[in-house]
Design a protein around this nucleic acid. Structure first.
Lengths: 216, 216
DNA sequence: CGATTTTCCTACCACTTGGTCGGAAAGTGC
DNA sequence: GCACTTTCCGACCAAGTGGTAGGAAAATCG
């Protein structure tokens, strides 16, 4: 469930604001922060890493984003809006099978987007943390399981509509698909090529639906 | 390829060493360090976290293990020797199919060992890192791909022996199995129950080998 | 016993961490 | 022009980081 709405702030270009106008674009700065968190993880990213990537200085960061953790949460929102939106839309596909196929194929596209860091922000930005930041690791884990919930709900609906076998367990199926997709994310993070990931997806779909699966 | 040999140091109980005897057991301390790195990741673990868990003070740590990174590498060795050894032995199974089945089932056992932190040390201790520790993240990524190499070699041998279909691609198969196993590791790290992981493994094996797969 | 070797441990090091203060600067409305 | 509002930014903060120095302590050897 992407948290939606990026860019609440009035922008530089919107005419007539009172006080000195902000000299940087909030969304651009946020995107720069997102990329650093994505590459180095929450705990591997220092305030200095952030400010130099964002092109602003420390007090500007704090006045715009309050704290490192809040900035991270804003970056997550932006990730959902910019990078993950297309993947989440697979629940709109007409059949359960199409949902699975498109979920995995779009995941691969997303995980190996050449214009972005490799892998999955939700996975690698905070898989584990020190006690001090355990809340963030737990939050990200919750975000991951929400993807599973989304699929489970979609499969359950498909079952009601007779589009999924009555003896199938939607929760188990969703869990299985998500588990595999997390594996794709790990491999993508390690630099595995898109073609190889797609080959694995092809195998997965063959296992689920038989040889006649569409490999796009 | 587990790096083997833990415990090169002369131990407290081995009689007659010159100089003041060490007051802590090196392997016990190493194990305590392993657990902390496992739970919090390399960058999420501070020297203070380590010394308090190991029950020693800072100079003792440095005299025994040289540096934080070297200690981490020693912990990795110990992980292979203590936690992963049984999983790696699956290559000794008689058939390719048995190798796959046992690899996944033993992985689940290992990932949810109730006497250990959840998940996979090799995955979660350093999935991504700051630039300063990028070497560690890269090293761990290499360790993960060595698991894939191990399986690929085993499948290739099986193919030579006629135990794996001639038109099968051992590299692709190994990649697929390893990708799924990394997914299991992520889910285990997030607290997914052993029974649910085994259910996913059952699905995976059914997809690979058909319904008559042994679920142990 | 004293000399030697090794470990233990308090105190310390320079540097980085996340975060803030307060005045100068750049806009607005009147 | 002047009051007002907001941002910019150098300087600063306490606390924590990985790592070390150096003397006291505990063992062995002769």
């Amino acid at each position: 469930m992407p948290v939606a709405t990026t860019g609440r702030e009035r922008n530089v270009n919107s005419s007539k604001t009172i006080g000195r106008p902000r000299e940087f674009d909030v969304d651009e700065a946020l995107d720069a922060a997102l990329v650093v968190f994505w590459r180095q993880g929450f705990e591997g990213t220092s305030l200095s890493d952030l400010t130099s990537a964002m092109g602003i200085n420390r007090p500007a960061l704090y006045s715009a984003f309050t704290s490192k953790k809040k900035l991270f949460m804003r970056a997550l929102e932006r990730y959902y809006a910019i990078d993950a939106a297309r993947t989440f839309k697979v629940v709109e596909e007409p059949t359960a099978r199409r949902v699975t196929e498109q979920y995995l194929l779009r995941s691969v596209e997303q995980l190996t987007n050449p214009r972005r860091p490799l892998g999955c922000f939700v996975l690698q930005s905070a898989l584990v943390c020190s006690e001090e930041n355990a809340d963030i690791a737990a939050y990200m884990s919750g975000q991951r399981s929400m993807q599973e919930d989304l699929l489970r709900a979609r499969y359950a609906r498909a079952q009601k509509q007779g589009d999924l076998a009555a003896d199938e367990d939607p929760a188990s199926l969703a869990r299985f698909v998500c588990t595999f997709r997390q594996g794709l994310a790990v491999m993508a993070c390690g630099g595995m090529a898109r073609t190889k990931l797609k080959d694995s997806v092809r195998r997965m779909l063959t296992g689920l639906y038989g040889d006649a699966s569409a490999a796009k």
